[in-house]
Design a protein around this nucleic acid. Structure first.
Lengths: 203, 203, 203, 203
DNA sequence: ACCTAAACGAGACGGTACGTCATGTCTTTTT
DNA sequence: AAAAAGACATGACGTACCGTCTCGTTTAGGT
């Protein structure tokens, strides 16, 4: 029929795939995303250009894949019973990653690219952001059940209250991203989410 | 001698400048930022390429200029005495602009571009974001003096608590940007910033 | 050991061979020799590319084979006793073939290709030209024995005198190839070859 | 209108043109016509590919131009009063050129290419063959007026009788191209063209 | 009838070149 | 002196084929 002919993944060369992803990571590190070319990646990976075009639709998808391969499993979110402490752990971890020179460039590149390419955006968010956000949400749900967060709070909003300010500062570079900043944000947000206490319960 | 030859701005053709900025806006609207080319802009504006290269250093700077010309003066922030109501006005205005199809594409494009180009980023933030942020900060300062915001609050952080979540949702497209959302964010943030009340003042 | 592994012709698939030659003929007819690709031939014939590379060394050889399969046996040269008439029959037949649209394209393609590939040239001449030339030479030998052609004439040269002009016109397209032209050439050449007659025999 | 935009020849870089033609000649000499690539020519000439594509429509046209630049003016045909001698001079000259290693490769390449490209063929014939053929025809006309060639002879045909056999042998490589062969052809052809003499005038 | 080695279809692969597009620089001509 | 026009060297694009190389899958002989 009219279907586009899809390559046969079972015949795919794992060797080439690895070489390509490695080349992408190196190349992004050296010349940045904008000046990264498929041609250079192919050359560095010792691979035909077609092999790249066969398996990745765009430069963005390629870099996303390379970045995913670079990242390990996301650190699990702890539950010590102390919401503030636990949330500060995630926020600091997020922040450390955003600031890590190894990840910063590709992160910015992908963030930029996703602004222009919604399909890539979905992949990007699902693969890299969602897990973190969901884990945080889960932790907040526990806190909510424990009465540390008000019952009526929409946890999706809560998560955005936490991450939003950090990304805002990272994106706009309006001020340095410090762990102190992350902690402050957590404290403010938890204050906002706290259930209305009985008289005298507010610290 | 070794000085870079700077063009003489007094001889600049206003006619060409206007035509170029107009062409850029149209072009971005039609093919998006990525596929916008200097060549096409020059052709559409009936202008030599050199005229563009003479006055703008990069594509990003060109689009930024075009975008600035497109925007009017930012709406002034009201002071009705009701902080919540006033902040909701700004936040809603911000949001409406982010969602306006006429501005969304260039905004995303510039946001993307600034990730890769810190010099452009500074211009972008100073020209487009800072005024809004500063106005908001000023309003919060008034509130702080009026005792509606706790004394110890760092107002720069406060501003980020407000705008961060909105931009987060806009950038990641995790959920629709509604005025209700803006209002909710304002309410939460003000709750967090509220000064510790006397027993019984909460709720 | 170092022997090149030769394919076992006894196991060759006649079905594939036919399909390939058919595909070649069709393909040459549709897109011409230059734009004929092994890939397209394989696809059209429903055959793996390797099957073509296994049995034919070059595109030229492949097309030559396809062309040979297309051609029937060469018409035998008559001997009516009248040299002029007999030669005109061959020359006209040659000409008809050169002008036949079914054969013209591949003929030109092969003629072209042989200019660049002497090995193919030999095959081409031996298979397609030589028989005709030899038959003509044989007829001239008979004529020579019959005293219609001078004794000293080198018959190889005689044959070239006949065919040369016709091919010249075909190759250079300097004028249309008509049967009248073929006849004229035969007449002139026979005049040149005629033995020196006794006084009064000329005319 | 719908006209294709033609480059402005007055701005053409003579420097680049020369470098390109030189590179083509060298490249053809080294790797032959088939393996000559635009890319390699551009690289060797220190020129952008586009500069080649801007001024020449096909590889064939490019090589033809290069070949024309290589050739000097064609030697003028002498008129000593002795037709046979004069014609032998042209034929030998033709032959020498065909056999000259410097010219043979490009000549064969162009002859081949013209088989597939009638437009190029016209240029090729007009520029390289026609002058020679016309000169020969002119000489024959003189001979005809002098009564050395029969009145009724179509001189275009006569020219083909002369050149056809030589090209035939060159193209098919059926036998070595010698000056003796050229002379023989001239003698036969003149014999064929001779006017019917009075008794005793032959020999 | 079974076994085994080949030829086979399919198609991924490393390459090379294609012809096009846009870059930023340069030069020529016009205003 | 700036501007319109556009040729230029450069370099990447994405595509088309090349000829080689696996992959299973037929398909013939040889047993």
């Amino acid at each position: 029929m009219g279907e586009a002919k899809t390559p046969d993944a079972s015949r795919r060369s794992e060797r080439s795939r690895q070489a390509i992803l490695k080349a992408v990571v190196e190349q992004v590190g050296e010349v940045g995303y904008t000046r990264l070319t498929i041609e250079a990646v192919a050359a560095r990976a010792g691979v035909g250009k077609q092999t790249i075009y066969r398996w990745w639709p765009t430069k963005g998808a390629l870099v996303l894949d390379a970045f995913l391969a670079l990242l390990g499993e996301p650190a699990a979110l702890p539950d010590t019973g102390d919401v503030a402490r636990d949330l500060k752990v995630v926020m600091r971890a997020t922040l450390v990653e955003l600031v890590n020179p190894r990840f910063e460039l590709p992160s910015r590149a992908l963030t930029a690219e996703t602004q222009m390419d919604p399909a890539l955006a979905k992949q990007f968010v699902d693969a890299l952001m969602r897990p973190n956000l969901e884990a945080t949400k889960a932790r907040l749900r526990v806190a909510q059940r424990a009465g540390q967060v008000a019952e009526g709070v929409d946890l999706d909003v809560a998560v955005e209250l936490l991450f939003g300010p950090v990304y805002h500062r990272w994106l706009l570079r309006t001020a340095p991203l410090t762990e102190r900043y992350a902690d402050t944000v957590v404290d403010y947000v938890l204050a906002a989410l706290r259930p209305p206490g009985p008289p005298g319960s507010a610290g």
